[in-house]
Amino acid sequence: MARRGPVVLRAVVIAYLVLLVAWPVSLVFTGAFANGLAPVLDTFRDPLVLNALRLTAIAAGWAVVLNTVFGVGVALLLVRRTFPGRRLLAALVDLPLAVSPVVVGLAIALVYGARSGWLGVPLANVGLDIIYSTPGIVLATTFIALPLVIREIIPVLEEVGTEQEQAARSLGAGPWTTFRRITLPAIRWGLVYGVVLCLARAVGEFGAVKVVSGNLIGRTQTATLTVEELYMNFDREGAFAVAATLASVSIIAIAIVGLLRARTERRTS
């Protein structure tokens, strides 16, 4: 009897995860190969699809780099410093999670639009287009994924406290060495998780990108936009194939984190 409770709970949790996550995602993979390998290969020979994947990779890559660098900086600022407006900044960091991506896209278009945007007009005058071009997509993707690294690191920074850093300083380490040798190792798992989440989020971004990219096929169409387009045009294998590629990126990333983590845990214990 005593074991009944945990067994039921486990069954419920498993059913929930299977129905909501595992089964639908697996259908994407089986859907891609519904008519064998040939249509999938065809999809990946399509230059428009390749272009979209490349654009997604570029946008996600920039989003990860920018959000990692600034994320660590902002997290350190929020945790290790007190300054006026600190709470406001902390609230601002959460904004991208709370606001619909479409709103984010519109907001960016308003500021950076080449015809009437506050910053867009002067930038257009020096020949730099943001909206309907790659910089706009990078901007929107970065914006959307901005809180993820910060939110992963902040609790870790709070948890480890400042004593180790102060000990390093008193042992002769400058600020940069202290960051590299003490702070960074302390936050590394939070950072890796943040980066993985950021990558997954950036790769999958749809709404904001749709607004700022203009969805110009072959030029500003990202992978998620391509999935929608293929699906609308009844190219189900194509849509599933690209979707499965996107899903794979996330699954692989999470798997790598799991493996790395298991290995270091074994090493340190």
Partner: peptide, 14 residues
């Protein structure tokens, strides 16, 4: 701190 030639031992070891 790194220029003072001071060794510091924390209560919780750090």
């Amino acid at each position: 701190p790194q220029k003072r030639g001071v060794g510091f031992v924390f209560q919780h070891y750090a």
